[in-house]
Design a protein around this nucleic acid. Structure first.
Lengths: 214, 214
DNA sequence: TTATAAGTGGACAGATCTGTACAGTTTGTC
DNA sequence: GACAAACTGTACAGATCTGTCCACTTATAA
């Protein structure tokens, strides 16, 4: 259990930053909320920015793993998985501690393109697009790149809508839009892909995203 | 010119908050950037939060006016206007000072649902939805509410994509998706609504959104 | 001219910010 | 037991935060 304190810090800092924001969270707050001394924090991370970058790395890994596993559990076919993205989102939105997307927040608080935090947040989205594009290609989409970009735009929009609460069912609205896009991209042959009738149970190891890791 | 200093403060504070963020911008920075004394600021607004709320009110008015006028200039028909939303977005994204959506930023920095800044940001989106829904109804959409929600989700997603730079043409991707939704919502009769061939010039009084108002 | 309102500049209070310093304590390993 | 590494608690520096105070200047208008 060598690097446990460091990991524990990153895990707990994630929940605090996610809950309260980056600038709004001071290092003293983190000391109080994590129970880890400030000395130790600054031994593992030379600056607050380095800690934030580590938090973003952890979140990137957690989120992409969670999403990909979840949609694989929800549907066996690539086309069904693309739609299942929005079922997974719906589950996420329903979590009590849901507060939007950490990377959108980070990009908002560090808005300069060249800032490491901004750049790393953008990289997360690029990796997501890559993942969706691979699935779109496997599904036989006419233009996998375009379809992936459109689905990602729907996903980001649904997250914003869910966080700001201006849509009663953002995942549902995005899902129905995605179905139309998919039907169009796959040609008229597979219009009514029935991907959502099997609502797979969460498999063990596939935990909710917002839960307190304490 | 009675309330000019107050308006000038709100206008200039808008550009600074939009450029740097809310928590990252201190009142002393605003003094420096606006040339208005701190005493005057706190005479017009009792707290920083009140100033932010005034900034958001101004932005809400500016943005909604700009968008509605722009799409009316771009297309005479309601259906065309719904598509023209994404042409307007493209113009916005191309502005040199574009840095995403101020309301998404605000909701990110003040993430509690009940916080006045969060609530007012959400209200802006609700008003946008209402506007789009009216146009969708005028266009004869089967379900104007759903169509408006889907278009708004596409819009928010495109803004996030543009700000984070993970899509080479977010407005274009969203626009093509919107065309599909619209064709579906209007029935098969008006599939190829040619809304974008007339690229209306900016009319006077319809200025870009990010320009320094100084 | 004179009364009123609005704006200025700078010092200040008290809190909080990031990051450092240091002496002491726990923990794991030989 | 002994050594090294990791961790703790607290105090601190220096900057910055929101908001106040006060004496002074400028503009407006009767």
């Amino acid at each position: 259990m060598r690097p446990s304190k460091r990991d524990e810090l990153v895990r707990k800092a994630l929940t605090v930053f996610y809950r309260d924001g980056f600038h709004a969270t001071g290092m003293d707050t983190l000391v109080q909320e994590t129970g880890i001394s400030k000395t130790t924090m600054f031994k593992h991370f030379r600056t607050k920015e380095e800690l934030i970058l580590a938090v973003l790395r952890l979140r990137d890994e957690n989120f992409r793993n969670w999403l990909m596993r979840r949609i694989a559990d929800l549907s066996p076919s690539p086309a069904g998985q693309l739609i299942a993205v929005f079922d997974a989102l719906e589950e996420w939105f329903a979590e009590p501690d849901f507060r939007g997307c950490l990377f959108i927040k980070a990009a908002g608080e560090y808005p300069e393109e060249g800032h490491p935090i901004h750049a790393q947040s953008a990289e997360h989205k690029r990796l997501l697009k890559k993942g969706l594009e691979a699935i779109a290609r496997a599904a036989g989409a006419a233009d996998p790149n375009l379809l992936a970009r459109q689905l990602l735009i729907l996903k980001e929009g649904a997250i914003v809508a869910a966080h700001m609460g201006f849509d009663p069912d953002p995942a549902g609205a995005a899902k129905s839009a995605a179905k139309g896009l998919l039907a169009q991209a796959l040609g008229s042959c597979a219009t009514s892909e029935r991907s959502d009738e099997l609502h797979a149970e969460r498999k063990p190891g596939c935990q909710p995203l917002c839960g307190d890791p304490a």
